[in-house]
Amino acid sequence: MLQGHQSWIFENRPSILSTGTVGGPFEAKGKIPEAFDILHEDMWINQDSWEKAQQKMLEEAIQTTLKKGRIEKEKVEFLIAGDLINQMTPTSFAASTSSIPFLGTFSACATSMESLALAASIINAKGANYILCAASSHNAATEKQFRYPTEYGGQKPPTSQWTVTGAGCALVTQNGAGPSITSATIGKVADMGMTDPFNMGGAMAIAAADTIEAHFRDMQIDPSYYDLIITGDLGHVGREVSLDLLHDRNIPIDAEKYVDCGIAIYREDQPVLAGGSGAACSAIVTYGHFLQEVMKGNLKRILVAATGSLHSTLSIQQKDPIPCIAHAVSIEARGEHI
């Protein structure tokens, strides 16, 4: 299973049986509304706090995934999920209502791919038959915790990003009918001494480049192997920085083949500045959009490198730099893998 220094190859071909995605009103107006199974008109989702609204969306994503996969909840061995809110309460509370044995994961916005990689490796080792992995975020809950009250008038610079409101979930199983998870690369934490919390794309770009480089080195392949290389939430700034970094390291990726979930999710005329972000961003766009393209046959092999910025409000106040991470998972259409 271990390949190279920091990658796993999944010989038993764990596959994604079904997915569930939930979004908010702002996402409904975005570029890919068809990527969502459920879209809400109201940010509150009939709850009395933003955090509960996030929990509700995660519960709905889990239920939708189970329904689409025609699997009863009792058959699922583990739930691997996480989010960005203090001590991950929305995820823990959702895990409590779903009563599936639960592993909490935190890699900030890279949580989606950390969960997927762990799920695939447990399934590959026959440690389980069905594992749900999920990530969620809520724009207002994140604003409240990391930035300012939602109604506060603070001008955001053009490098800042818009946290996605939503949740994305995938059901991973033994050699099933869906697309296969073929390999994964676990990233190192990169700290470039960046301190601006309003430029996370610029801080995370190095982590994305490091992990993508490590993936090609460990797997002994080059970028032409993939139809698309997808980053989590680098936005316009981070995408350009990471693409140029990879070029400098002699890993030339076609600009058209290098896409970012944070750019793919919203339209250009929405006021998102550098693009979308948040734990739900990579989960929703990967599961709701790119995975569907793989199933339709439009894409054969994709590499998803979700990026996360591992700071807290406390660490920013105390002038600590922003450490960043990226985890990459390779997903291939049935019969396409070597």
Binding site: P157, P158, T159, M194, I206, H236, V237, D244
Partner: peptide
């Protein structure tokens, strides 16, 4: 890296 990044940052 910071210099590299700064060149690509969207300016205010």
């Amino acid at each position: 890296y910071q210099a590299f990044q700064q060149k690509r940052e969207i300016k205010r």
